[in-house]
Computed example of a mutant assay.
Amino acid sequence: MSLPAVPEAYVPRDTSTLSIPQVKRLDFKTEYLFTYTMQLPSNDPPFIIGKTTSGLELIITERGTRVSGTRINGTFIRDGNDYVTLRPDGTSIHEVRCVILTDDGARIKFTYKGKGDFGWPAGYKEVLEGRMPGKVKIRCGPHMETSHPDYLWVNALQCVEVGEVDVVGRYGTFDCYAVV
């Protein structure tokens, strides 16, 4: 099936007639904030919600998450839940909301949405057949919020996170960086 023609109103403009200044690429750096390591409980396998129009929906429970870093140290309160949409191409969307309780008593809301890789192209089919991959790489963009006076600086951050879940070893580890 071919796509319909693009309506005239949506055809890109001839940019040669625009007055756009010459700009240079904007540089940025990252600042390492912390690493967190979580345990996947052996007695709590992923809860499969089922197939939806977006893909296979499941919830992965995380326990015993420790946060250690240069500026933030603590634990996640209670269990964390990773709401995962596993798409037919083997990629995944992850949505997580949790709270970091710092060692000095601050409460920091920590949320992220990101993408993972369950294995292309067979990951989706294998999970449907009850087989999880050995490892899942996850990349995401966390946000943090707090009212604690010692941590107000986190409210202005946009972060990036690089992680990997070792399904066989039943743990995950993630490095969190601020974009500065």
Rank of each mutant, 00 (worst) to 15 (best):
G90P: 02
A122M: 09
Y112T: 03
R97P: 00
G105W: 12
G114F: 04
E129M: 12
Y151M: 11
T146G: 07
G130I: 02
L86R: 08
I108C: 10
W120L: 08
D103K: 14
G123T: 03
L128H: 13
H143W: 15
T85V: 15
P149A: 09
C98H: 06
K135E: 11
A122D: 14
L86M: 03
P133Q: 08
V160G: 08
P149L: 15
D103F: 10
T111Q: 15
A156C: 07
F118S: 02
N81G: 11
A156R: 14
V136K: 01
P88W: 07
S92K: 00
D150M: 11
T102S: 15
G134E: 02
G105R: 12
D117G: 02
D82P: 02
N81E: 12
I93A: 05
F118D: 02
F110I: 08
S147Y: 12
D89T: 05
L86P: 02
L152Y: 03
R87Q: 04
V154H: 06
K109W: 05
P149D: 10
K125E: 13
P142R: 09
I93H: 02
N155G: 10
H148Q: 10
V84Q: 00
L152R: 12
K137I: 04
C140V: 03
G119P: 10
V154L: 05
T91F: 13
F110Q: 02
G134L: 01
E129H: 10
K113V: 07
V162Q: 14
I108F: 00
K113M: 08
G119R: 01
S92E: 00
W120H: 07
G123L: 01
G105V: 08
L128N: 14
D150R: 11
R97G: 15
H143Y: 14
C159W: 00
G105H: 04
V160S: 05
D89V: 02
K113S: 12
H94Y: 03
E129F: 12
L152K: 05
G141D: 07
E145V: 13
K137L: 06
D117A: 07
V162P: 00
H148N: 13
W120M: 11
W153P: 04
F118M: 06
D117W: 05
V84D: 07
K137Y: 03
R97H: 14
G123N: 12
T102N: 13
G116E: 03
P133H: 01
R139A: 03
H148S: 10
D89K: 00
P133L: 03
Y151C: 05
V84W: 01
L86G: 07
S147V: 15
T146L: 13
K135N: 07
Y112C: 05
D104S: 01
L152S: 01
V84E: 03
P121S: 14
V99L: 06
A122S: 09
C98L: 11
T102Y: 13
G116R: 00
T146V: 10
L152A: 02
Q158R: 14
V84N: 03
M132P: 06
L128M: 11
V96F: 05
D82K: 05
E126V: 07
F118N: 00
Y124V: 01
G114E: 04
D104G: 05
E126T: 14
G134K: 14
G116L: 11
